[in-house]
Design a protein around this nucleic acid. Structure first.
Lengths: 141, 141
DNA sequence: GTATCAGCTTAGAGTTGCTCTAAGTCAATA
DNA sequence: TATTGACTTAGAGCAACTCTAAGCTGATAC
């Protein structure tokens, strides 16, 4: 059994966010003690972990709520849940490509600044000259 | 010279967002035609491209504004701008790791559902049983 | 010539997902 | 008994859009 504070520490989320999620009815197994305080048993913690993951995947509260409802309905919704994860997977691969591009862009930029600082390139006064980096290495997609 | 609409199409951003950015004074070289309509020359387009990049790196409007101000000041702010990109680079690598974890998680999940659907695993009625995937492959970080 | 249409302008309301504050309850310790 | 700490709620604030309404302008259609 975990309090909001303990759950927040364990899962590295803010207490505010955890309360917000419970208020949005995202944790169907949440219980309250005699003082009306939120308590998370292992099942509720599992829900929280899963919801955190779905959030990180970019899913909205509304869609997570839908997913939770599907899960509670059991077997008959397996295919719909499968489709959801297929879709999330595609999105994740897109994000991966974007993130890789971003890392490359920033590596270029840092290298560029290091060259300037080490005086290999004399001046960089023109405010938007740095956009040339974009042109040297155009975005994929 | 590009109108808001053309810029939006070229850079795959919404017209709303572009107007919002100009209203936030993020494009110092923006000009208006005689009817007060926003016009983007190549320099302004470069700014827009750069700002879009910074936004994708997770920078706030406020911080981008600061960055733009630094750029306009020229040479004397090179080191501060270098530090900004160093920091963004670190963040980008963290994001890369997170995204890779996410892809792996979703691959596992999709595989799991495929096994269920193909009847290799008989039932999955328990709503939060899927969180076991987390335990099989605990998060890095 | 005027009607209407697309495309722009603005101010401002609405949305999401937090994030924080204020005011209050409760149990335990000093 | 006082106060401390951890919780409760409703609701305000915030970032970054996102959209709407009302109005202006210039071009084409009749």
């Amino acid at each position: 059994m975990y309090t909001v504070k303990e759950a927040a520490e364990l899962l590295e989320m803010s207490e505010h966010t955890i309360r917000y999620y419970t208020d949005c009815q995202l944790i169907p197994t949440l219980i309250r003690d005699k003082n009306n305080q939120r308590l998370f048993n292992q099942e509720s913690m599992n829900w929280l972990i899963g919801i955190k993951r779905l959030k990180e995947c970019g899913m909205s509260i509304k869609d997570i709520k839908h997913y939770v409802a599907l899960s509670l309905q059991g077997d008959s919704t397996i295919d719909e849940r499968y489709q959801i994860f297929l879709h999330l997977k595609d999105i994740a691969y897109d994000q991966l490509e974007e993130t890789q591009n971003r890392v490359q862009f920033l590596e270029n930029k840092v290298k560029h600044y290091e060259e300037i600082v080490s005086k290999k390139i004399p001046d960089d006064t023109n405010p938007n000259k740095w956009n040339k980096l974009e042109k040297e290495k155009p975005e994929l997609k």
